[in-house]
Design a protein around this nucleic acid. Structure first.
Lengths: 216, 216
DNA sequence: TATTTATCGATATTTTTTTATCGTATAGCA
DNA sequence: TGCTATACGATAAAAAAATATCGATAAATA
């Protein structure tokens, strides 16, 4: 197998990478140098073998009796995710949820930098929310040309989701992180990721009603 | 290997149920009576066969050339998830994120009723955020006895996550919807569900860098 | 009424993901 | 130096999830 060709079909692994990254960074702050798969597994409530499997993707080799290099893992995961440098984004829909994302400091942990907010409410336009300037949605196309952000966070009311999506697409956005409850339609070359809070709640409810322990 | 012995089949199916529910309710509002697997599949960017497989869980039989009964599906899914009646919860940590969840009307779609907020900040205690009264965390145990909520939404700073979790557990909470970036530890009979925004972003970033179309 | 077409549903297959097994390498230590 | 315990890594197996196939059934239409 060609080592330069990443198998992208390991979506569950990709989903776990940020969790690894989070713990690894904590360890790095404590000046730890190495970590074992068993340690990480226990933190995440998964099996050590799964951690090792996941790390195959990072191409970082662990050493027996020592574990994996923490800095090596961090660098590799960041590179894989493209989180090594700032990830520029805009946010559309500065309502309840949008504003809280703008103020959500922990999001910055993965170098997500929100350059601008957009809203249709004239009251909000011209203000700054948590330090991020808010513009009129009508200026989206114009400003996107300058900002060069390829990623948009969509936090508009559901009713506006598709309209705004169309506008984002025609303005050249390449990825949309969709927080609305609508399933938006985009051309094939635009990526969308729906963040569905309800699905987590569904899992929680079902598990509670079955009274099951809760590994991931 | 003392981990969960019980198996909950079909977690991916459970995760999709709220999305089905959302569309079904929209259709019901438009007085539609029947829906086909193909229709739902297209809305959700999945295959019709997967929809039919998922619906096996609901035990609602479809009829050829007509589709499934919308009201039947809604009732069955709601029953399966326990979303037919109000789901009482409390929220701990009325910060940015916590406040926005309290004000997030669309959450109510699944009958989640947040009875009270808790915070350690004396400035917030005694106020009401989006109509939800905020109490001191020190009163958590006392008030939980009266409120009879079994579910807690955890939106405290990461540093406090485990402490508050311990408090919730000793106060009798059965399920914790964890929005912090910490992996909290709970006894086996308490369910936790970690809502990891970063994992969605990771998938989005990887897909964007590979420029893949975006199903699921 | 016969024909056509859409759509379900049972069964089988493939793919993906997780877990198990076991050999191997390495650090620590006598 | 040689022994031992630990933790990785390759391979294999199992489990879970998604997809394919195709017959059956019901509605629409001629």
């Amino acid at each position: 197998m060609d080592r330069n060709v990443f198998k992208i079909d390991k979506l569950p692994t990709v989903r776990r990478l940020p969790a690894y990254l989070h713990i690894l960074r904590q360890l790095a702050r404590c000046d730890e140098k190495f970590v074992s798969s068993a340690f990480l597994a226990e933190k995440l409530n998964i099996e050590p073998i799964l951690v090792r499997k996941d790390f195959e993707l990072t191409r970082v080799a662990g050493t027996p009796r020592v574990g994996y290099s923490i800095s090596g893992l961090i660098a590799s995961i960041e590179e894989f995710l493209g989180w090594g440098e700032d990830l520029d984004a805009i946010l559309v829909g500065v309502g309840q949820l949008g504003a809280s994302i703008l103020g959500y400091r922990e999001l910055m942990d993965f170098r997500l930098r929100i350059l601008a907010g957009f809203d249709s409410d004239p009251e909000k336009v011209g203000t700054a929310v948590h330090g991020v300037p808010v513009f009129a949605v009508t200026r989206l196309e114009e400003l996107l040309g300058r900002l060069r952000a390829r990623l948009a966070i969509l936090t508009v009311p559901s009713a506006d989701a598709q309209n705004i999506t169309d506008l984002l697409v025609s303005s050249g956005i390449r990825g949309i992180w969709n927080y609305t409850s609508e399933n938006i339609v985009v051309p094939a070359d635009v990526i969308t990721q729906k963040e569905d809070l309800a699905s987590g709640l569904a899992v929680l409810c079902v598990k509670m009603s079955r009274n099951m322990p809760s590994p991931l």
